[in-house]
């Protein structure tokens, strides 16, 4: 079965073609953001959210790239939530209408289900069940994945997402927004011993996160160490910034690692998938890898293009549901708020 996937839940427009036996045939993405700086959030501009203008040319592009004709498509999957309602409606309207015109089934896909199943697009993919840590500018969630449609939310951020905290702290340090990756680069020059930031919510049971306080902690440290009329020379200012960045990054990474270890121990499941834009962070990757090794398990990382928003994961998740016989009647809707727990399980 040849499935077209359309992702328009937020700032990026992603389109892909997935074929059940051949796998991913083609995928493409329109984003305003520099591909090398793609974790922790994006700068939305009117143009980048203008999915109306992007989606059809991108569909033409993947068809040409895969060398298939439009009437060979056998199913359409589109993201119908959660996300920005205006953005979602564009993908839903295009996807549903295209399916109607081609007289093929269409299926709405939950954006987060797409992310959770993205590792299955890789040759070296984990078996079910696994634990997934989704960390991006918009999400910080630990989810137990027992199968397609069988998800249990283990914990999530109660305030800011990890990537958002990265971006905002970077901005406070005078880096451009969104500056998560830049912050990590500056942190590499920092002294890990100079400041120690708290590891929020690690001293109590549970798998929820809170990163808002860390941002404030960074701000207060900055006000104290770098007052308006400081007596430090430029070199000292740069070093202090780097030291703060380092303390901040260490605190976020440690917190994520501590919760992942706890999730692995509590669930007894030793496979952990790291996804979302922040999973590109080198410190996080290394520490998660070491931790899982020590626990006798293994960490999996989908390639960066499948960690951030993309059409491939939507095509794949949609295919899983279409082959199980699910599809949408001749109507469509967007669900800006949509809990993962509301999804139905798919029988293998």
């Amino acid at each position: 079965m040849l499935v077209l996937g359309i992702e328009t839940s937020c700032d990026e427009t992603g389109v892909a073609l997935y074929e059940s036996s051949a796998g991913l045939l083609s995928h493409t993405l329109y984003s305003q953001v520099d591909i090398h700086a793609d974790y922790g959030g994006v700068v939305p501009e009117l143009a980048s959210r203008d999915h109306v203008r992007k989606t059809l040319p991108l569909i033409a592009e993947v068809l040409a790239d895969a060398g298939v004709r439009r009437n060979q498509i056998e199913g359409v999957a589109y993201t119908s939530g959660p996300g920005l309602v205006g953005a979602l409606l564009v993908g839903a309207a295009i996807g549903r209408s295209l399916a109607w015109a081609l007289e093929i089934p269409a299926v709405p896909v939950h954006h987060m289900e797409g992310h959770l199943l993205a590792p299955m697009l890789e040759d070296d993919c984990p078996e079910f069940p696994f634990i997934a840590l989704l960390v991006s500018g918009g999400h910080t969630q630990l989810v137990e994945v027992s199968g397609v449609g069988r998800y249990r939310l283990l914990g999530e951020s109660l305030d800011d997402a990890a990537g958002e905290a990265f971006d905002k702290t970077a901005k406070m340090l005078g880096l451009p927004y969104p500056g998560g990756p830049e912050l990590a680069r500056v942190a590499a020059q920092g002294d890990p011993g100079r400041f120690r930031f708290p590891r929020p919510m690690t001293d109590r049971p549970g798998l929820d996160f809170s990163f808002s306080g860390l941002k404030t902690f960074a701000l207060n440290t900055m006000h104290k160490e770098l007052p308006d009329h400081h007596t430090l020379d430029e070199q000292q200012v740069m070093q202090t910034r780097a030291d703060i960045a380092r303390a901040f990054e260490d605190a976020v990474v440690d917190t994520l690692v501590i919760k992942c270890r706890r999730a692995v121990r509590e669930s007894g499941c030793k496979r952990l998938v790291l996804a979302g834009g922040v999973s590109a962070n080198r410190q996080l990757r290394e520490k998660i890898q070491q931790t899982l090794k020590r626990e006798g398990g293994r960490a999996y990382y989908p390639r960066p293009a499948f960690c951030t928003d993309n059409g491939a994961m939507i095509a794949y998740a949609g295919w899983q549901r279409l082959k199980a016989g699910q599809h949408e009647p001749l109507r469509f809707n967007a669900q800006p708020r949509w809990q993962l727990g509301d999804l139905s399980a798919v029988r293998a």
Partner: peptide, 10 residues
């Protein structure tokens, strides 16, 4: 329940 930051979702 939690009151999450709306920075990303607007």
């Amino acid at each position: 329940e939690a009151v999450k930051s709306p920075t990303y979702t607007l």
